[in-house]
C-alpha cells in the first residue's frame, strides 16, 4: 500500500517521520536530556543551596575534591562489592528459578504467579521488610537459622560490619532475581523442545544440554537481564537506605547514598552533581562492557 510518504518522496518521508517521533523526543529531552545537561553544568560550579544561580564556575574542582577524598574511594569500593554480588546472584538465581519454573510440575502456574510478587513490590518496601527480617532481636532470619541449627544465638546482621553488606545485597537480589527469572522464563519458553529431545537422544547429559543449547539460546535475554542488573546495582539506593542508611559506619554507604547526602541533606549541589556524573559514567561503562563482552564472545 502506498503511504503518504511514498507519494511525497524521501525528504518528505524524513519530515513525516520526525513529526511522528517529535512528541516522544520532546518528552525525552525535557525529562532526560535537560536534567543530564543541568547536572553536568552543576558539577562544574559551586552552586548555592538555594539554587538561585549556578554560582561561581569552579571547573573540575568538584571532581578533584571527590577523587582526593577517602570517603569517595571507600564508597566506590562498597558500590563495586555490592554490584558484583548483586549482578552475579540476581542473574544466577533468576536463571535457576526460570529453569525450575520451566519444568512441568503440579502448582507450576501458582509458582509462576508467586515469582512476580517480589518484582511487583517497591524497592523501599523490600528494604523495610528485610530490615525486620534481618533484625537482631525479633527477625525471622535469625529464627530460621536457629531452627536449622545454624546458629545458637540471634545475630544483629545489620549492625555487624561483616554481615550488613551481604544482607543488603541479598535483600536487593530477592527482588531483582524474580525480575531476571521472569525475563529468562519468557526466553526459555521460546526454546523448541525438539532441540533438547534430539540432544538427549544423541546421549547429551543435562550439563551438556544446558551449556550447548539452553545458554546460547538465552544469550540475547541474558544480555538484557545482565545490563539491567548492572544498572540497578550501581544505582541502588532504596533498599540500602531503608535497611541501614549506609551504616554501620560506612559499611554499606554506596555511591547513591553519598550522592543523596550531598545533594539533598548537605545541599552541596555542585559536589553531589559531580558524584552523580561519575556514577552515571561508571554505570554506563559497566553496562556497555557487559554488552561488548557478550557480543564479542558471540562473534567468536
Amino acid at each position: 500500500m502506498a503511504g503518504a510518504a511514498d507519494l511525497l518522496g524521501p525528504k518528505a518521508d524524513r519530515a513525516f517521520g520526525l513529526k511522528l517521533v517529535a512528541p516522544a523526543m520532546i518528552i525525552l529531552i525535557v525529562l532526560l536530556a535537560l536534567p543530564t545537561l543541568l547536572t553536568l553544568v552543576y558539577s562544574l560550579h559551586d552552586v548555592p543551596a538555594s539554587g538561585s544561580s549556578f554560582g561561581p564556575f569552579v571547573g573540575l574542582e568538584n571532581f578533584t575534591i571527590i577523587f582526593s577524598s577517602p570517603v569517595f574511594w571507600r564508597s566506590a569500593q562498597v558500590t563495586l562489592t555490592f554490584s558484583v554480588g548483586f549482578v552475579i546472584l540476581s542473574t544466577v538465581i533468576g536463571l535457576a528459578m526460570a529453569m525450575l519454573l520451566n519444568q512441568r510440575f503440579i502448582g507450576r502456574g501458582l509458582a509462576r504467579a508467586l515469582l512476580i510478587i517480589p518484582w511487583a513490590t517497591p524497592w523501599l518496601v523490600i528494604g523495610i521488610l528485610w530490615k525486620w527480617f534481618a533484625d537482631g532481636s525479633v527477625g525471622g532470619l535469625n529464627a530460621v537459622l536457629m531452627m536449622l541449627g545454624l546458629t545458637s544465638d540471634y545475630h544483629p546482621f545489620l549492625s555487624d560490619p561483616n554481615t550488613a553488606l551481604p544482607i543488603t545485597v541479598l535483600a536487593a537480589v530477592w527482588r531483582q532475581a524474580s525480575f531476571a527469572g521472569i525475563l529468562l522464563l519468557a526466553g526459555l519458553q521460546t526454546l523448541p523442545e525438539e532441540l533438547n529431545e534430539a540432544a538427549q537422544l544423541d546421549g547429551a547429559n543435562w550439563w551438556q544440554r544446558f551449556s550447548n543449547i539452553t545458554l546460547p539460546w538465552l544469550r540475547p535475554v541474558l544480555i538484557t537481564v545482565t545490563v539491567f542488573n548492572v544498572i540497578y546495582a550501581f544505582l541502588q539506593f532504596d533498599v540500602v537506605f531503608a535497611m541501614t542508611q549506609g551504616g554501620p559506619g560506612d559499611t554499606t554507604q554506596v555511591l547513591s547514598i553519598l550522592i543523596y547526602r550531598q545533594l539533598f541533606v548537605n545541599t552541596n549541589i555542585g559536589l553531589g552533581s559531580a558524584l552523580a556524573v561519575i556514577l552515571g559514567v561508571v554505570a554506563l561503562i559497566g553496562g556497555l562492557t557487559i554488552v561488548r563482552l557478550f557480543y564479542r564472545r558471540e562473534m567468536h
Binding site: 530490615k131 533484625d135 537482631g136 532481636s137 544483629p156 545489620l158 549492625s159 555487624d160 550488613a164 535497611m243 541501614t244 551504616g247 554501620p248
Partner: peptide, 15 residues
C-alpha cells in the same frame, strides 16, 4: 547490645 547501630528508638523503649 551490638544491634544498637541500627535499632530504632521504639524497639529500645520496648527493651
Amino acid at each position: 547490645p551490638k544491634s544498637l547501630l541500627t535499632d530504632d528508638p521504639g524497639k529500645l523503649s520496648n527493651e
